[in-house]
């Protein structure tokens, strides 16, 4: 039922000899096709809000700014918390460092760890067995007074606050008991502290040197830049004393 004349006209125009008019029409239709394709791809690439009404956009913007305010408030809170935590961490680290230092010095003073440092090595020879516990105790007191931080006798007995000195079982065989440990002459006392002050503490008139030589012994003092005190004091548990908190 197709209209033959209309179809023939279309067919004739399709196969017609190219003319200037047809070219112009072609150019215009090309422009139309181009514009339509561009517009279609433009609509495709537009974001989700292109078709949204103005009121909706305003509402969206408002809710976004409210959300942003809330997030900013939360951020400020979190930063505050972070700062407080950092501060407390720093304080805790400082306290930890301080207690670690205190622990180190207490362990050194109580003879629980080996010590190294400058000091003096005092050698007391006692050929006649006449130098006794009292002389050594006096010497230790003088050394402590001069700032001795670690003391050991004959590389076997560490001298700490609880250390006691006793004369040996036989007074003639030149031996002493330090903390139940028997040490024999020559007594080598290694002391860590300021070498000059420690040497001075043995040499003053009436001090260790004078006392030992009066008893028939000899004392030699050698200062050293690095002494090692490696013996340890026995660990003691307290039974009665408790720290007052």
């Amino acid at each position: 039922m197709l209209d033959q004349t209309a179809l023939q006209r279309v067919a004739r125009s399709v196969v017609a000899r190219p003319s200037r008019g047809q070219a112009v029409v072609g150019v215009l239709l090309a422009v139309l096709g181009f514009a339509a394709a561009v517009q279609v791809s433009e609509v495709d690439s537009d974001d989700a809000y292109s078709g949204t009404r103005r009121e909706d956009l305003v509402q969206l913007l408002q809710s976004l700014s409210v959300a942003q305010d809330r997030a900013a408030g939360r951020l400020a809170d979190l930063e505050e918390t972070r700062d407080a935590l950092q501060l407390s961490t720093q304080q805790r680290q400082a306290a930890l460092l301080e207690s670690q230092e205190r622990l180190d010095s207490l362990r050194l003073l109580s003879g629980q760890v080996a010590a190294v440092g400058p000091g003096v090595r005092i050698t007391i020879d006692d050929p006649d067995g006449t130098v006794g516990a009292a002389t050594l105790l006096n010497a230790v007191e003088e050394l402590r007074d001069s700032g001795a931080e670690a003391i050991e006798v004959n590389e076997a007995a560490r001298v700490v606050a609880q250390t006691w000195f006793g004369d040996g079982p036989d007074p003639a065989d030149a031996s002493l008991v330090v903390d139940s440990r028997t040490v024999s002459a020559p007594y080598v006392v290694e002391v860590i502290g300021d070498p000059a002050t420690l040497a001075e503490a043995t040499a003053f008139p009436g001090g260790l040197t004078d006392e030992a030589e009066a008893l028939g012994g000899t004392v030699s003092v050698v200062t050293s830049d690095e002494l090692r005190v490696e013996s340890l004091a026995p660990a003691r548990a307290t039974s009665f004393a408790e720290p007052v908190t």
Binding site: Q22, A30, A36, A37, V38, Q39, V40, E42
Partner: peptide, 22 residues
């Protein structure tokens, strides 16, 4: 004929060049 060709060419140009509209 030229008209149909022009339309096709225009569509293809728009699709492949994808220019952004000022």
């Amino acid at each position: 004929m030229i008209a149909v060709l022009g339309l096709l060419v225009g569509v293809l140009l728009g699709l492949f060049l994808e220019p952004s509209v000022p």
